[in-house]
Nucleic acid binder design. Structure first.
Lengths: 202, 202
DNA sequence: TGTACATCAGTGAACGCGCGTTCACTGATGTAC
DNA sequence: TGTACATCAGTGAACGCGCGTTCACTGATGTAC
């Protein structure tokens, strides 16, 4: 039989998740550094003091949001770096996956784009750590691709950085602009990088 | 004889600039959306009410900061897009100019990186408008380069977008990491783009 | 299964504090003659 | 140049308000026997 949370634990998790969900919603129109603890508890419908049963302060809640937001993005990235198919097929697949991710998790994407360089240090650092991990993972996948024979670790990491940064930029552009032109530009930019990659060792 | 401001006007400008300078300093450790009007006037040493003689609110001050910050960046960009010399020379020159800009205007760079996707809509939009203008300008310069013969307007704009985004990312990376490795990565990424550019029409 | 006690998520009231905004004011600067 | 009046950047006091944090509490859930 699988492990079941007690009623008390389950209820606590539910409230915690409600705080995170409400915070994410409130962050659509403001930054974490101006998000109030009372705002969040008011949106959930609990007493302000209840907040402290779950988080030390709003920065702490922000770090929890980073883990949630980048956890879901992590799955998308793993799906995007599959190396089967032609370059164009891989580009189309990666771009389609990003578009789908933004459609299903717009608030997560906005949060990451906003707080990546935001005013709350622990959150900024948590995002930085995770994005660097993503880049490491992408670099490793690139290294396994026969197309990367002869590439140094350093150059693979450099290329992975381009892909991760481009993904974040594209995701955040999708929140603001029309989908079709943003995706067309993203595909062209990836084709440009693919061409550069192909001639890197010339 | 050149036009001279009256004493009153000159003093007013001075206070206005002091408000902007103090705000920029305070924004090193927080976002605009949590910057208080009283914080700023306290730092300058004027009464809170004096703020209203210059700005409607802190968002209004933020828009003024965008113009100042991107005005100085504009000069750097114009210097960076000069098309003389080999590809490597142009890359070295552009990267050196960015590094110098970040060294001389770190607070401006931080402000732009932070508020580009920040929680204050008018500021975000002002930054977006200016960065799009920069990209247009870069696209125009690229179009004048013989290397771009046969490129469509759309592809030139796409490439210009890569350069502008890369510049902003590099500038913001310079604020956080060691200069030398960040610049080395930036140069490698620009070489990658240059290679892609050279084979775009193959 | 039932009982007696322990745990602890969430409550509700209270606190001191700094916030943004308003207002009538002051006194240096500007202007008209 | 001097005088009389107008302008207006900056003042200082006042306001109502929502904030983060604390605390003793309640009552449902968990645990030991």
């Amino acid at each position: 039989m699988s492990h079941t949370l007690g009623i008390r634990q389950a209820q606590k998790q539910k409230t915690r998740q409600a705080l995170m969900d409400s915070a994410l919603q409130l962050l659509e129109h403001q930054s974490l550094s101006s998000l109030g603890l009372r705002e969040v508890t008011r949106a959930v419908g609990v007493a302000p003091a209840a907040f402290y049963r779950h988080f030390k302060d709003t920065a702490d809640l922000g770090v929890a949001l980073v883990e949630q937001a980048l956890g879901s993005l992590h799955d998308t990235i793993r799906a995007a770096i599959v190396t089967t198919g032609s370059s164009d097929e891989r580009i189309d697949r990666a771009v389609a996956l990003i578009a789908a991710h933004v459609r299903t998790h717009p608030a997560h994407v906005r949060f990451i784009a906003r707080e990546r360089h935001g005013g709350v240090a622990p959150v900024r650092e948590a995002i930085g750590v995770q994005l660097r991990r993503f880049a490491d993972e992408v670099a490793e996948a690139l290294g396994a691709d026969p197309q990367s024979t002869g590439w140094s670790r350093e150059d693979l990491r450099m290329l992975a950085g381009v892909y991760v940064d481009h993904m974040v930029m594209t995701a955040s552009a999708l929140l603001e602009g029309e989908e079709a032109p943003v995706l067309a530009t993203a595909r062209a930019q990836l084709r440009l990088v693919t061409l550069g990659r192909r001639h890197w060792l010339d």
